[in-house]
Every structure is written in C-alpha cells, then in structure tokens.
Design a protein around this nucleic acid. Structure first.
Lengths: 128, 128
DNA sequence: TCTTGCCTTGACGTGCGCGTCAAGGTTTAG
DNA sequence: CTAAACCTTGACGCGCACGTCAAGGCAAGA
C-alpha cells in the first residue's frame, strides 16, 4: 500500500509517516515512480509507535521497540533495550508523580488560606 | 538597582528579566542614559514569578498575581483572578496525576509480563 | 586613552512532533 | 485533454521561556 492508505489505516497523517522515516523509525520500498510502498508489517510498526507515544515515550525512545520488531520478535518490548526504556520511563513517571503531589498540596494550602510558607523546591518539572 | 544586580539578587539572568518586561510582567524606570532602574518592590515581583513558575504555572498565568501585588495587596494570591488560576491549575494537576497513574500501571504490567492488552487511551498528556 | 564591564535593542536558535504551504511529477477518471 | 487525486522533496511555522550572539552606547579605573 502507499503512504496515504497506510496513514488512513493507522489513523495518522502522511506527514507523520514521512517524519518517522526521517527519524529512522520506518523504511519503505520505492516503486518505479518513486512512491513509497508499505506492507502489513509497517502498519504493525506504526501502531507500536503510536501506543508507545500514548504512554508518553518520545520517538527516540521507541527506536528499541521498532528494532525489536524488525529483529523478528513478536512483541516490541521483549528485548532488553526496550525493557530498559520502560524502566527509565517508570522512574520518570514516579518522580513526576511525587512532584505533582507536592504541587497539589501546595495549591490546596494556598486555596485554603494565605500561607506563604511552603513553597516547593524549584526542582525539575519534566512530566511528559 | 540596575538589571544586572536585580538578576543576581533574584538568582536569574538579565535576559529573563527583559523577557518578563516584554510580556508585561515587569516595568522599569529609565535613567537618563536609558538604563533600567529597579527597586525592592520589583525584586519582590520577580520572586513571586519564580515561585509560581516552580509550581508549574506559565508566565501568562502569573499575570493576575503580579497585578494583585501591584494593586497593593500584600500577597499576590489574595485576589479572585489569582485564586481562579490556582483552581484551574489544581484541576490540571489532578488530571495529570490520574493519567500518570494509568501510565505507571501500564509500565509495571509490561515489565512484569508481556501483556499487550491494556494500552491506555491516547488522551491528552499535558503534565506541566 | 584605552580597556573593562556594564548597559541597550534586535534577531535568530533551542526541543519535539509534526502542520502547513510551495512547487512540482504521476496516475486515473471523465 | 483536462481535472482530480494521489505522490515527491524542501522549507518554514508553532509553543514556551528564555539562551546566545551581534553591534553598539555609557561609565569608571589604570
């Protein structure tokens, strides 16, 4: 199938697919006129990328999963590199949860009274 | 004091202060040679902005607080507009906490087994 | 006088995941 | 033959809070 159909079936846009290719996540055969040609396997790859993005992983982070699928594994997260990404993301999420709890309590306290004391530390705020 | 000293005392940069001014958060007197001149009150404003940013509020969101301080109130969050910002942010934080909990459980499940079922909904992911 | 260290405005760069033209080539339907 | 609907590459735009030059003015010490 060509890029338009792949985009439609995956519920995304051709622009996104071309961007994935530019990032080394997707490859395509080319027909004689230069059009990209995809198979069912590529649809599977795109779906994997989408579900990982839904969890908050960056495109960079999805690379090990894609490589794992390309290597012939049935699921993209059965390879060590993929699982390492999961672990790193989990740590990130935990840190973010803790941070947001602090912020939440700060906001509640401020809404209750004017208590200008417990300003939370200006740590990092990367909640993807 | 001039912009360099204000930046140093507030633990920020001159670039940030000029940016605040461009966003309408900060005003400055000008000396005869065109230099910005600040007072202690401005240091107070900058500190307010910083602590609000630490909670994850955007510069836009800090405007009501700054206006509140400028209006003569002792604390920036004693005005209705400020408290509304707090409430909105609290709702955001709550949504984000819920979302991150889902993601966390997804990651834990994936790390435990390969359980390709419960992919979390690709809702919004705005965790500031 | 010259250097040093302030200050000024203006404009472009950053990260991320694309959206949105622009300017063209290809294939198919009418 | 022509229009519609695909496809190609390339380049700029976006949001946000500044960082980082660039090119110059101002003030004070050696």
């Amino acid at each position: 199938m060509r890029i338009g159909e792949l985009a439609k079936r995956a519920g995304t846009t051709t622009r996104a697919l071309r961007f994935y290719e530019s990032q080394g996540l997707l490859e395509a055969q080319r027909t004689s006129n230069g059009y990209r040609e995809y198979g069912e396997h590529d649809l599977r790859l795109v779906r994997e990328i989408q579900s990982l993005q839904a969890v908050g992983l960056s495109l960079e982070d999805t690379k090990p999963f894609v490589a794992c699928l390309r290597a012939g594994h049935e699921s993209g997260d059965s390879c060590p590199d993929s699982r390492e990404v999961y672990r790193r993301k989990l740590a990130e999420v935990d840190a973010c949860l803790e941070r947001l709890q602090t912020v939440r309590e700060f906001l509640l306290a401020r809404l209750a009274f004017q208590d200008p004391c417990l300003v939370p530390e200006p740590k990092e705020f990367l909640c993807s």
